[in-house]
Design a protein around this nucleic acid. Structure first.
Lengths: 336, 336
DNA sequence: CAGTTATGTGAACACGTGTTCATAGCATTC
DNA sequence: GAATGCTATGAACACGTGTTCACATAACTG
């Protein structure tokens, strides 16, 4: 009953050393590849360590080797958004391939800036920030703490900050041209949260491309990047008697909501009565029953570029900041 | 050019102390609520710290206060699975409410056990394991390292391991009775990965409830818990001429895939020609166009219980292990 | 055999913090 | 006026590790 109830401490290298009858240094060396240590001794130590369930404390190790904690914070968008969820999955897996441990923040709308600043208490190897609007204020703190920052879905010019971003305007223009080529002339835009640059760029690209075709927008509407928001917006448009024959949606989730509303509330056929094009190319867009024409915001390429910039930045902390542009691609399916 | 290229070190408390003309102890006290420190002095220190961008190193702090690193590892399922994605989002947000930082692992099928063992190098406050099959081997290591483990979607009896699990058999039985009450007699089961206990329990519940109604399964099939898998399985069933009038699917994603296949490949009307019931109640199930009848595997309640068990375990590390059962609820919509 | 090199090894240091210890000043109480 | 209690403060310690330092032994080289 000596230790009852109390949380006993973690096994330490000193305890392993005592049990194996060696010095503590030897234990540390046993877990360090390439260190001078007698083979038999190393095996003895590893065996004892295994029995005791010893594992070097990563916190203490990270404290020792300054500048490499192997922790990387990811500030994600709302995971109800499928695009963010799929990106996160790829990102988490890829970071493990680099030996990094991802600390995940956000995942919901009310992401408090306080949380982001809080995680900076850890000596992070890097901070990956997906979209969002807190970038500017966070960047300042990152700079002071010498923590590299990688921005995805947004561009910012600051020392130590690298960016990966889709050419949103170009993607929007591709959608417009595809709709016009299909014979559509009364085109509408359904945007997302207006204060995000992704939405602004897609809208600008939409309007510019439309002007080049000698057309002007028939409708400019906004929702919240969600299926439900897209559904409600489309229902309101239909009820308001809006006359459109093509709609470009700022992301796929809203496009799917619009399709559901157009079919169920408006009795419309797609694409006969209304052409729809989305943005992102989430996995759901390819599902039979949706078959959504969309602009691919390539996730694999995005994650790949994030990792490339991350590695380069860790290699050369003082290098110039860089922006990796992701080329959009029009995926032709059945709704345009 | 003195420091060019080299990654300059993080600001430390000693540097703040020197800049503010106080002892290092005072700096530490300035960031500790309730410590004896002259008010003016504290304000001075905080001001200097702000200017220098100082932030106490959480690694060193965690090393100091043994037993509380505020790090919690989450081993999630594949995030392509919407249920896992939605659970993760809630979990991440809730853990922040407890002041914990979530380190996320997995998110893809090939979750290597090596990764899970690797994260145990950190002195975690706890490990949350969603579903999966690596539980047994991990539990042993957790026990040796005195790291509390919380299992979700799976039950295991071991000291220091708490579990949260839906009563899968009961949920399956509810689905069966709803189908029978609708007049269905030729019922099939579309399961997920067979070696997971969630699938086994749901199938057992299905068969038992069916037997109680004096019926036997018309079809027992398996897919991979994905939309695409459900679609393919349903197509094969239709091509094979299977005679069923009701299908219970082990999760919603497969149920949605089955619906798409039944409509597009088989030309069937739902629920007129075929009743379908899913499991989980992901947000998509409620979308117009799907309107899926399903057994709710309550996510809010699950996360809430995980947090309760976590708090209780941190409060009393030696307490008996506990299993929190989540009561399933039949959500009646339009597909049964 | 003398001289150089490669291999082992334990003691000691550094990482950056929170907290205890001892001491000192000051205000309050009897 | 002495005794007591509260506030404030810097030095010192502990946390658990990786690595350097000094030294010892063994293995080659000429």
């Amino acid at each position: 009953m000596q230790n009852s109830g109390r949380q006993s401490r973690r096994i330490t290298a000193a305890q392993v050393a005592e049990a194996a009858g060696v010095s503590r240094s030897a234990v540390s060396r046993a877990f360090t590849a390439g260190a001078y240590l007698d083979r038999a001794k190393r095996e003895k130590i590893l065996k004892v360590a295994q029995e005791l369930g010893y594992r070097p404390n990563a916190l203490a190790a990270g404290l020792q080797a300054a500048g490499r904690s192997d922790l990387v914070a990811i500030v994600t968008g709302d995971l109800v958004n499928h695009y963010d969820a799929e990106i996160l999955a790829r990102l988490v897996q890829s970071l493990r391939g680099l030996g990094k441990w991802p600390v995940v923040l956000g995942g919901h709308e009310d992401l408090r800036e306080e949380d982001v600043l809080g995680v900076l208490g850890y000596p992070l190897d890097a901070l990956v920030l997906r979209g969002g609007s807190v970038a500017e204020s966070v960047a300042l703190h990152c700079a002071k703490l010498n923590i590299p920052m990688i921005l995805s879905g947004r561009v910012m010019s600051a020392p130590g900050v690298d960016c990966v971003c889709c050419d949103n305007a170009r993607g929007a223009a591709m959608a417009v041209r595809a709709l016009v080529a299909r014979g559509r002339r009364k085109l509408g835009y359904l945007g997302g949260v207006p204060h995000l640059s992704s939405d602004q760029d897609r809208r600008t690209g939409f309007e510019t491309a439309l002007a080049e075709e000698g057309l002007s927008p028939a409708v400019l509407a906004h929702a919240d990047y969600s299926f439900e928001g897209g559904y409600a917006a489309a229902r309101d448009l239909l009820a308001g008697g809006a006359e459109i024959d093509g709609l470009f949606c700022a992301n796929d989730a809203m496009a799917l909501g619009v399709m559901a509303a157009a079919r169920q509330e408006g009795g419309l056929s797609i694409p006969e009565d209304l052409s729809i094009i989305g943005f992102d190319d989430i996995s759901m867009a390819a599902w039979p029953g949706f078959d959504l024409t969309t602009v691919r915001n390539d996730m694999d390429e995005t994650v790949s570029q994030i990792l490339r910039l991350l590695s380069a930045r860790l290699e050369a902390p003082g290098k110039d900041n860089e922006v990796a542009w992701i080329e959009p691609e029009l995926i032709l399916r059945g709704t345009h």
